[in-house]
Design a protein around this nucleic acid. Structure first.
Lengths: 332, 332
DNA sequence: GCCCCGATTGTTATCGGTCACATTCATGGG
DNA sequence: CCCATGAATGTGACCGATAACAATCGGGGC
């Protein structure tokens, strides 16, 4: 194929290759002629052959988990966008279970395809650990994990996010804030617990026991029913919006008014959050930015220049979105 | 690399290749020896080289759109799962806009990578049309579209889904059913409108004007406010769950009780649906099955045997999930 | 005017496999 | 006992690009 172009342009195939790869020493007039031929034949170089010969493909592998959840899906999209802009394609492997061998196997599958590098979305502790000890020499970046050994890591600053939520509630006048956590083997869940606890302690408040959820609306619903029984609770910080949604449902069933009786704050800012009853105060994560920084980190690892304008810091700051589900306590 | 294996096993590289590809004429004893060498060297064939030489890669391209929405995300996951099981990898290209040139460009990007075939998730009319007139000779299957020219098409039977929803409401005793549609340039939206209208007409009921939404909770909220003004409405079929969610919010704000005053039915059965206030009656789509059938259709196109146990029919039947948001009208 | 050097361009090997065809060897029919 | 036949295996070309090195050409320094 490249030979057809070469023939049409009256040059050698190597010169065509040079033009395609922006090699400096090609005369302008020659380059022009080649480009005309390329356009005329509607030529597109074969990525496989390129990868084989050049030993670097323009494809990045992504190991993802549960892309039906909002966070992972949004992160994946962010990565894809950033990659496309940088001229890379994306190959994905979704994991069914997020354990050690699964992650390693997935990376191997991608390595087989000679991807230039991989991004591992590994929100579980076990996965992060696996990522930290990859056998292969594939350049890798890890998302939402900070115990991935030497690998560069990008994540939203969950601790700061939790602090935003808790401080907001304390400023409204609540005595303390309860927490419905995510599953404890998720790093994000653990960080949000830490942030919540640290903020309460820093303010000298009582730290109630952690309620354990599993991200699902169902677990929020069940926790909500329990909280509705106790009278004392005035503010709850849920580890994600779906749990908050389930909790709102439980409160509404029990006649607990939000925010008059109890304030609820979520995490994620899913598209639905603004339209719940009542609209949900929550912490927004910028997944697009996460994707961008992942790619930047990976490109750096590959020895390519980082795209301009992308901050380097591995911790993306979240922001608080105040809506009607949080307000001052009745007593205050 | 394959030569290392060959040397270790004491055979030619070609024999190794035969073993790897299940060629029949290899003596069992030889095959065994090769497999041992493969394991010992932890050899994995290079997918690029394979694709280049064999002119067929084990990668399937997926052109997707807005994978943050539940439907596309779930479909993508279903395809990935089915592909992995069949020994294929997945490359994705997400579209920013779903227009003609975007789809064509995306398919070209995938073709460059010599994918074995592509699955196009093209819920918009324009995209479907583009898919129908692809320039390249890449085997393709289209999801959620029936005007993709000669290309095989897999989709959930939206008309049947709408019928389930409307018949359910009519059986409860409602005189007629209003409809909040999705954006009209989405095929799914159009089909749901058609199914809704046809069911009403078949039952000899009055067909109210269509309310136009855009899938977002916001548009559901706004439509809900309008409907709350009119007294006559007793049942609404929303084209998706997010719109239904927004509508529930509007009703709750206006003091319209669900289902006592108005019944609401959604479409999709997102994970949140069961925990809205009230829990949402909705139509469930089996996206996993869609993914499976997509892959089956594509493999068939590629001349590979269809995996056993996968139904061939291009229209996946949806099912009704009845919850508390629908009930008999007050008058009945 | 001659030679050396850098800018251009061409030639050939190579990436890691598969494909097409050649070769070897054991078996069975005439 | 010889040859056709088919199973099992080996040999070299080839997929479509890039890499390494060779060749060619024009210009400046002596």
């Amino acid at each position: 194929m490249i030979k057809d172009v070469a023939r049409l342009a009256g040059v050698s195939h190597q010169t065509v290759s040079r033009v395609l790869n922006d090699h400096p020493s090609v005369r302008d007039e020659t380059r022009e002629r080649v480009l005309v031929a390329v356009k005329q034949l509607n030529y597109r170089p074969n990525a496989l052959a390129r990868g084989l010969a050049g030993r670097r493909s323009r494809v990045i592998g992504v190991v993802s988990f549960d892309t039906i959840l909002h966070g992972p899906a949004a992160t994946l999209l962010g990565i894809e966008r950033a990659a496309r802009r940088a001229g890379y394609g994306i190959s994905i492997v979704a994991l069914e279970r997020l354990d050690r061998s699964g992650v390693i196997e997935a990376v191997n599958r991608l390595a087989e395809q000679s991807v230039a590098g991989v991004v591992i979305i590994a929100p579980l502790l076990t996965a992060a650990a696996a990522a930290g000890s990859l056998p292969t020499g594939v350049p890798a970046v890890v998302v939402e994990s900070d115990l991935a050994g030497d690998l560069p890591t990008i994540s939203v600053d969950q601790v700061a996010g939790a602090r935003l939520a808790v401080e907001h509630l304390l400023e409204l006048g609540h005595e303390t804030v309860w927490h419905l956590s995510g599953p404890k083997d998720w790093l994000e869940a653990r960080d949000r617990i830490d942030g919540w606890r640290a903020t309460l302690e820093a303010a000298g408040r009582r730290v109630p026991p952690v309620l354990a959820g599993d991200w699902s609306p169902k677990s929020g619903y069940e926790a909500g029913r329990q909280l509705a029984e106790r009278g004392e609770v005035t503010a709850v910080f849920c580890a994600n919006d779906q749990q908050a949604l389930g909790m709102l449902r439980a409160f509404s069933e029990r006649g607990v008014r939000v925010p008059e009786d109890v304030s609820v704050v979520g995490f994620d800012d899913i598209p639905e959050a603004a339209y719940l009853s009542p609209p949900l105060t929550t912490v927004r994560q910028d997944f697009d930015e996460v994707g961008r920084r992942c790619l930047a980190a990976l490109l750096e690892l590959l020895g390519v220049d980082r795209p301009p304008g992308v901050a380097r810091h591995p911790r993306v700051p979240p922001s608080l979105v105040v809506r009607a589900s949080s307000g001052p306590p009745r007593a205050a």
